[in-house]
């Protein structure tokens, strides 16, 4: 699935962006499936805005986002649901877990959501939790988990569904080096299995994953 960005400018950042250059904003970019893209962006340059625009959580921008040639704004609510269920997965910066559900239920929910059928068996959750060291909190309410734990749950949640693109907004911000390494390895593995690409945004340079493309926002 090809992702095309055309002259994208978030309206709140319009004045700021007119004074400087960016690899993404107000340019033409074609992102091919399977590309592992790192977007480096200092605070306040629209990192989260970019992820939300690509995931169509916000519409306050000019320019175009095309998923496989189809204008993102043209997706109906039902088509958008299908896109999110089976083609585009996401790890939010603010994690966005259901605090009343247990960690496991949060992951399960996303696993069983696709109308086309589940991508993985439920046992895969245990395997992934084991690798990221969160097995002990699976039955705990997500609201009671630490940020580090919640972040790993959010990553596992994003990985149990089918996808061709994975959007990640500072996915390791609450993790120490060791846990970051483990999480990055799992992400790389899952993307490889699917032949999927990802867009990862972060504040600094890093070598957590073997990126194929680098952009500055």
């Amino acid at each position: 699935m090809e992702l095309v960005l055309q002259n994208l400018i978030p309206i709140p950042l319009r004045d700021k962006l007119s004074q400087r250059n960016s690899d993404i904003w107000n340019t033409q970019k074609t992102l091919k499936q399977g590309e592992w893209i790192k977007v480096k962006a200092p605070s306040g340059t629209g990192k989260t805005t970019l992820v939300h625009i690509l995931y169509r959580l916000r519409n306050d921008y000019t320019g175009h986002v095309l998923w496989n040639g189809k204008e993102e704004q043209r997706f109906s609510a039902a088509e958008l649901a299908v896109l999110r269920q089976s083609a585009v997965s996401v790890v939010f910066q603010d994690l966005r877990l259901f605090s009343q559900l247990t960690a496991r239920e949060n992951i399960e929910l996303n696993r069983v959501l696709p109308a086309s059928g589940t991508h993985y068996e439920s046992t895969v959750i245990d395997a992934m939790a084991e690798r990221l060291g969160v097995t002990h909190i699976l039955q705990q309410r997500a609201g009671l988990c630490s940020y580090g734990e919640q972040q790993r749950i959010a990553i596992i949640r994003a990985l149990v569904q089918p996808f061709q693109w994975l959007l990640m907004d500072e996915p390791f911000s609450h993790l120490d080096e060791e846990n970051t390494r483990k999480a990055a390895a799992l992400i790389a593995e899952e993307c490889e299995k699917r032949g999927a690409g990802f867009i990862l945004t972060d504040l600094d340079e890093d070598r957590h994953l073997p990126y194929t493309t680098f952009y500055n926002l």
């Binding site: 609510a77 999110r84 259901f98 996303n110 959501l113 109308a115």
Partner: peptide, 15 residues
């Protein structure tokens, strides 16, 4: 909030 998040995760509106 739950409805918003469910839709964001890809829950089909009709469902």
């Amino acid at each position: 909030e739950e409805i918003t998040l469910l839709i964001a995760l890809g829950a089909a509106p009709a469902q």
